[in-house]
């Protein structure tokens, strides 16, 4: 029992990590897109919890609001809109390249893991001092992030807003019924 209490933080992390990985596996393997979307939702929430564990409370909130609340709903809308019915394995996956793709993923993962584990990254806990301060004053994480976002990162922040605007315009253009997309064969040389 003492062990459990002493290592509560670690056990909680591993539990959440396991759930995150499970969700990710679900996204990749579940055939029905709706199920995959639900697995993705679960992953998002777990990642938000991991954010809180690393003292990124504001980001955790953003994660839940934007991802789980906004993007996820968008996905579900589209899934409902386009009537996906590929429930057979050969419809859901590119079986012919799957082995090679998995091999590639594992290979890259192994190489990167080797880099992480053999690298010079010192083990040890971090600190939270700067994550909650503005200058010398201790404040909440949200306030600190906001402060940094509107001072040092003001220009990138504005640029990113332009990116969002462009994306919005792009989405509208693509989604328009009379979009200037020609049908197959029209205007396109075979």
């Amino acid at each position: 029992m003492g062990f459990l209490i002493e290592n509560f933080g670690a056990i909680f992390f591993f539990l959440v990590a396991a759930l995150t990985v499970a969700g990710a596996v679900g996204v990749v393997t579940l055939r029905n897109p709706v199920h995959a979307a639900l697995a993705l939702l679960e992953t998002f929430v777990m990642v938000a919890i991991l954010f809180i564990l690393r003292h990124a409370e504001f980001l955790a909130a953003v994660q839940v609001l934007v991802y789980a609340g906004g993007i996820m709903v968008l996905y579900l809308f589209v899934i409902m809109l386009v009537k996906v019915k590929d429930l057979r394995a050969e419809d859901a996956f590119l079986l012919n390249i799957a082995p090679l793709a998995v091999l590639g993923g594992v290979l890259l993962g192994a190489l990167l893991a080797a880099g992480i584990l053999l690298g010079t990254m010192a083990a040890g806990d971090g600190a939270v001092a700067a994550l909650q301060t503005i200058g010398d004053e201790t404040v909440g994480n949200t306030e600190a992030v906001g402060w940094l976002l509107f001072t040092k990162f003001l220009v990138p922040f504005e640029v990113v807003s332009v990116v969002l605007l462009v994306a919005m315009i792009g989405a509208i253009v693509f989604g328009r019924r009379d979009a200037a997309l020609s049908g197959p064969g029209e205007g396109v040389e075979p």
């Binding site: 992390f13 996204v27 564990l53 996906v84 590929d86 419809d91 998995v102 590639g104 990167l112 992480i116």
Partner: peptide
Amino acid sequence: IITATHYLVLSLIIFCLGLVGVMVRRN
């Protein structure tokens, strides 16, 4: 103690799962 390395490995696993997903999903 949970270190950055734990998080990196977790992040790596999710990243590679996503990568494989991008490659193998038809939809």
